[in-house]
Structures are given as structure tokens and as C-alpha cells.
Amino acid sequence: MTTVNRFTVVALSLTYALYFGQLGVITPYLGVFLDGRGFTSAEIGELFAVITLARIIGPSLWAGIADKTGKILFILRLGCALTVFSFIGVFWAFSFWYLTLTMGLMMMFWTAVLPQLEVLTLHTVDGDSKRYGRVRLWGSVGFIVLTVLVGQALDFFSTETPIYASMLVLSALFVSTLALRQPDTMQRNHSQSGSIWGYLRNKVVIVFLIVNGLLQVSFGAYYGFFALYMRDLGYTGMETGLLIALGVLVEVGIFLIAQKLIARFGVWRLLMLCLLATGLRWWVLGTLAEHFWLVFFSQFIHALSFGLNHSTSMQFIHHYFPSHIHGRIQAAYIGLAFGLGGAIGNYAAGQIWQQGSGAFETFAAASLCAVAGGLLLLLIKPAQMSQRHPLHS
């Protein structure tokens, strides 16, 4: 690598650390902040659902602009800048709809960041998976560090702490993008034309998307209320932060061996394992969360719930579909599973939670959703997920 490339890689690593560090601030602790503002659990769930829906619209919108203009870095910086400006409104947003609008806009702009960052990084490292892995690793480091720091800060400061931390991290993120450079070799992608609906109207694909959607529905209770739940059970902010960070740490570990596991056991079997293990994880949280060590060990299942499941799903997409539609299939996967599934899960969890009195019912419902995904997976055979799509030429 040249000196310029080394500098760019350092800047990319910092950008990943700040991007995922912001997720480590807002994802676990947004519920704590909203509770401090006096919102009910139903309102928290509804707000989470609205901002999650932006994950359906945002990625396709920004990807379309990037594809037409080829200005990947400009869109990345624009997304970061607009995210900062829209987030400023949170400091004065005390009504439900004002805060929902502010957070929804922030998330819409936020969705422009990661896809462009991924494309930029892959071109910068010339597709070298080892270099990419070293850069991407800093995202997990950023998440863990910020999650633990903000969790500890909540032990000493008010529930407004997450938004002050977010403002600082988002501003630093924008500054870090100013040090990035777009490689001259990057070209617009004109190959991804035509409709993908023909590929989606397939039993294996439909089951795959619904199964992942159900898994994300089950995550609604965890993303929306885990930190509040731990606080209500008497855990400190530091303990909660460490538990969340543990989940991300084991997720990093599973990424390192995911390909070997997929090669040995196959996509179908690993997806089934992830779904059933996640069902167990939510059941333990709903019934035995007052025992620290059980919660501690349940967080190890995050390696399956997210890490292995996501790696296995990506392997399925890249093997099952032709390469020229991988980007749009991934967008459909993210939009339908994480966007729609996540929004339904957040909304439902908020309705059931009832300021904590419905914690068991919420996690029990989450457990049933994950198990239901496993049962649905029985509609297709393991061999069907290791083949190619019938339209794959």
C-alpha cells in the first residue's frame, strides 16, 4: 500500500469505529433516554418502529442516487452532515411527534452512510478480504467501547447522556469522512438493471425472507427495552453496558469461524440452530434475568442470533443468486427483514411491555417468534438452500 492508501485505511478504520460506536450509544440506550423524557413503553415502541421503517426506504433511495451519480464519497459525507443537523432537533424535541419526526429524519439520512462506506472500503482495499476484515473490526471495537462508556456514564449522569454522547460521536464521524478519498478506479455500476421480483417469487426465497423477518421481530424486545429491563432489575449502567458489549464481542469471534461452520454444516442447519438458540435466549431473559450469570451466558447466544445468522444469510444470497443482483437482493433482505420485521417487533414490544409489567410476556412472544421461524424453515429441505436459484444462469 502506498502512504496515501495507509492514511486512507486509518481514516476508514476510524470512520467504522465512530459509525458503529454511535450504534453502541443509540441502540441500547435510546429506550433509557425516552423513558427519562417521560414517554410510555407503547410510545417508545412506536417511535422505534417509525425510525426502523426508514431502513426500508433509505438504503434504496441513497443507493439509487449513488448509482446514477457515482459520487459515493459525496453521498457518504452528505449523509453524515444531514444526520448531524437533523439530530440537533432532539435537544428541543419533547413532544412525541416532534421527536419521532426528528429521529425519523436522522435515521433516513443515517442509512446513506454504511452502504457507501462499505463500497468505498472494498474499492480502497482492492477487494482484499483480510484488509477489509482488519478495517471492519474497528467498527466492533467502537461499538464495544462506546457501549461500555455510556453505560458507565449513566450511573453518574442523567438519562440525557446518550444524546449528548451521540451528538459528539456524529460530529466526529462527519469530520472523519473529510479525510477519506474516493479511488479513481471506482466506476458507476450499470450492470444492475431490470426487475428482481422474478427472483423473489420463489418458495425458498420467500421462506428465507420470512424466517429472517421473524427473527428480527423477536429482537424488538431486546433493542427497545433491554437496558430499561436491566435497570428495573437493579443492574448498574456499567453492568448493562458490559453485557451488551459481550454480545458484540462474541459476535466478532463467530465471524472469524463462520465460513468454516457454513462449509461443514450448511446454510439450512445453521439457520435452524440460530433461530432455536435465539428462542432460548429470549426465554431465559424473560424468566431468569434476575440471575446475572444466566444473563451473562445468554449474551453468548448473540453470536448465533446475529453474527452467525447474518453470515449464513449472506452466504445464501451470494451462492443462490447471480452476482449482478447481489446488491439489490441484499437491499431487499435488509429492507424486509431488518426494516419491516424490526419495525413490527419494536411496535409490538412497546404495546406489550407496559412500563415493565409485561416484560415476561414480551420476551415470551419474542421467543415464540424465533421458534416459529425455525418451524417455518421446515417447509424447505436443507438441499434446496445449497442449490442455485432456478433463474440463475
Results as ranks from 00 to 15, higher is better:
A153M: 15
I57F: 15
G151P: 07
M272E: 04
G64Q: 05
M106A: 07
R55T: 14
G70N: 13
A337I: 08
T159P: 00
M107Y: 15
S305C: 07
Q355F: 12
V10P: 03
A359I: 05
A81Q: 00
I163F: 14
A343P: 04
A349Y: 11
L214Y: 04
V169S: 01
S218T: 01
L30T: 10
A263Y: 14
A227I: 04
P322I: 05
A289F: 05
F39V: 00
A172K: 03
S140Y: 08
A348V: 13
G45T: 06
S60T: 15
T124I: 00
V4N: 15
T185D: 15
G266L: 06
L61N: 03
G194R: 12
G350A: 02
E290W: 07
L249Q: 10
F255M: 13
G234H: 09
V145C: 09
R281S: 00
Y199R: 13
S158T: 15
R201K: 12
V284P: 00
T111F: 09
V252P: 07
Q330G: 11
F297Q: 03
H324C: 00
L76S: 05
M1G: 10
L271E: 08
V175C: 14
L61F: 15
R37I: 09
V10E: 13
K71C: 12
F255I: 03
R264S: 08
I262E: 10
N212S: 02
V267N: 12
V205M: 11
Y222P: 05
V204A: 10
I380K: 12
I344N: 05
A165F: 14
A263T: 14
V25F: 05
F20C: 03
C369R: 04
V9K: 15
V125T: 06
Y19W: 11
R188D: 08
F20I: 03
A337F: 04
G89M: 10
H291G: 06
F360E: 06
Q330F: 13
T40V: 03
M385I: 12
L168D: 02
L137D: 02
P162D: 03
Y164V: 12
F338H: 13
E251F: 02
T111M: 09
D35E: 14
L271D: 06
